[in-house]
Design a protein around this nucleic acid. Sequence first.
DNA 1: TCCCCCATGTAAGCTGTTACATGATTAA
DNA 2: TTAATCATGTAACAGCTTACATGGGGGA
Lengths: 200, 200
Amino acid sequence: MSLRYALLALLRVGPLSGYDLQKQFAQSVGHVWHAPDSQIYPELRKMELDGLIEGEEQTRGVRGVRRVYHVTDAGEQAYLAWMEAPLDYQRVRDPAHLRAAYLEGASREGALRFLNAHIAQWEGELEQWEGELARIDARDNPMLVRRLAVTPEADRERTIAFKRFAYEGLVERARIEIEWARRGLSLVDRLDGPAPTPPE
Amino acid sequence: MSLRYALLALLRVGPLSGYDLQKQFAQSVGHVWHAPDSQIYPELRKMELDGLIEGEEQTRGVRGVRRVYHVTDAGEQAYLAWMEAPLDYQRVRDPAHLRAAYLEGASREGALRFLNAHIAQWEGELEQWEGELARIDARDNPMLVRRLAVTPEADRERTIAFKRFAYEGLVERARIEIEWARRGLSLVDRLDGPAPTPPE
DNA sequence: TCCCCCATGTAAGCTGTTACATGATTAA
DNA sequence: TTAATCATGTAACAGCTTACATGGGGGA
């Protein structure tokens, strides 16, 4: 159910078409909640049915059409209610730690491949999130700029502070995943002797 | 697809009925990969159809029946192949950091509730994982003891070491989540003034 | 005229959740 | 005899993935 609130968070800033929304999504809230366009378009339709948003058809050229959505009062209230409500935490389902817990079943090479892939995976995420932190500080994200433009001066610090806070948490998480996997590499070396071809 | 490998990891130690498996699951691999029994029983049936395991019907009392499963050669090979194969990482979908990033939309009370619930959530996980770490060190987990009993002496250190490694990672993760949320509490205090009723 | 971007979806399938359903055995 | 535990499921639904499908607009 988080997807619709992620979409509302963006739409609250101002009306957007499904396409624009999906583009903005990828470079803002998509950093914490991924969704492909094949999920976004139907969800927007459902949200409209539920009265959270309304879409207006706009013509584009001669025969092109696009739907521009805006948040209704009911949508605004649903968003604020979600913000006050407890989150439902998913039960843990962590493939990397599952594999790590039974890594004695892998060959030394398999273990090293796994750990290096884990490092690469989280270095990728880290780069994304550090980039976003830098863009927050530089006020260099289009959605954030639009949001700040419609935010009363008194609330801007708050808005920025929470955004920084969220991304700082993500960055720290990526860092400990990387450190953990590096310790795993050392562990494999200790248990099985050093690798013949050291990983770059 | 991880569930079947989690189940294979347990069954490889020795044959178990669906019921026993499900009980052992909850206190071992279930710490990293949750699954309810309503998912385990059908999955076992599917794994049998796929030839990874075989079940034998045993009578229990006069008319009771239970199926005891063991891993086939094909199952063993599928498990080892999975251990060597790259993991597929799920795209990020993190409700807590999603909410944190837009926490300016919450009231001060809502923000505090969210952060305190986050702390409580991860303290619960932390307790589980620290408990499991202690049980690993004390050789006090039934499945681990059975596993070590069928593991050649030379591989026991490896088995223990990887299990510790996995749970250490989980413990660290829980700790930084808690620290992060505590910093969030301070941030709310700084932005909105201290809470009238400080959280216990 | 061709290609890239704009624009919006559908369909099949898998995984997981929640709730419900059923009956047997065993110990108090 | 009653309750706990053993034992095994089914059904409906939600959410997400992957692949496929279609066509218009605008610039080189």
